[in-house]
Design a protein around this nucleic acid. Structure first.
Lengths: 186, 186
DNA sequence: ACCTGAACACCGTTCAAGT
DNA sequence: ACCTGAACACCGTTCAAGT
């Protein structure tokens, strides 16, 4: 495992355990047994390191979705499965989820991160397309429908993270809301 | 205008001009001609000051929506108008928008902020209800439908802020996407 | 009650120096 | 090429002191 990879892993673990503010270069350096200056030999700055974490996570999510697409489950089950992957990730790694979808300054970096984000959303769009081909979802342009569905998912996750979802809807999970939403579409 | 109000106004202006990182207590203090320590006499800490900005903004949005509801426009136009209010706010005050809907640690503070957020979302739900009564929107429980619509709006705004909306959909604005979405519902 | 200025324990980042 | 340690210019927050 390269030093760069170990730094990214350490940053991801710090995000999980203490949130974004816990990811100081000093803490990252200490986690890999180096000085607080070591990250600068592998990343341009702190944001660049965080972007590397996001890139890894986008690729991991995309890979999970690709696996799901290759499975033999029913189209609608595949879509709900894809949503569940994202929901689970946001629950288990809230700070890293925010890095993926709530951080304009990091998204603006472009480069490999943008590429990974595109790849992930393309994979999601393919799952949506399968549902459309089977008549489970309306026949609007698949790229825009995928964006709408994903936007709704993200919006519900954010509302949930802010504690504004449960008291208002009574839903026991974001997935319950997404089921209701997909039913509205179909 | 009380010192507390001036501090909140200064913080809001700093958010607009330089984003959240520009809101240092030293900058806020200087903006009102006081020391960097003055805010502590009116707010518990930096987060508390930011929460006060969010509270003011939630109330302003709620007031605009209330005005819209009292107008004599068509139900669907009122809904689109309500969406446009939020879109405009997010474009003109991106950092303050993120404070309202993208900041779990601030939302978790509870108190007047949570109250203002509820008031705003209640107002939005009433606009949705009117559309349902007129048969423009499906007849699901209005509180959950309002949450779904708002979640989709927020998701599209976030995708737009991350630069991931236009290249994928070609929509010239988030409102275009919301029109497509509402058409899907109706 | 409200405000100031010094002080403290942090940060990210830069730079000279080492291997 | 990779890494270290000192240094710099910041932060939020605390505290003693003033009015």
């Amino acid at each position: 495992m390269s030093t760069a990879d170990r730094l990214v892993t350490a940053a991801a673990e710090l995000l999980d355990s203490g949130g974004e503010s816990a990811v100081t270069l000093r803490a990252v350096g200490a986690a890999v047994g180096m000085s607080h200056n070591a990250p600068y030999k592998h990343f341009h700055n702190r944001e660049d390191l965080l972007a590397a974490v996001a890139t890894v996570d986008f690729n991991a999510v995309a890979a999970t979705w690709a696996q799901l697409r290759a499975s033999q489950r029913e189209p609608l089950e595949r879509l709900l499965g894809a949503l569940e992957v994202m929901i689970t990730f946001s629950v288990e790694h809230p700070a890293r989820y925010r890095l993926l979808f709530n951080n304009p300054s990091i998204a603006a970096q472009g480069g490999p991160l943008t590429h990974a984000a595109h790849r992930a959303l393309d994979e999601f769009a393919l799952v949506v397309e399968t549902c459309q081909a089977e008549g489970v979802l309306p026949n609007t342009p698949s790229s825009t429908l995928a964006v709408i569905i994903f936007a709704t998912l993200h919006g519900l996750l954010d509302a949930d993270a802010s504690g504004r979802l449960r008291p208002r809807t009574g839903w026991n999970s974001v997935l319950t809301g997404m089921r209701a939403f997909i039913e509205l579409l179909g």
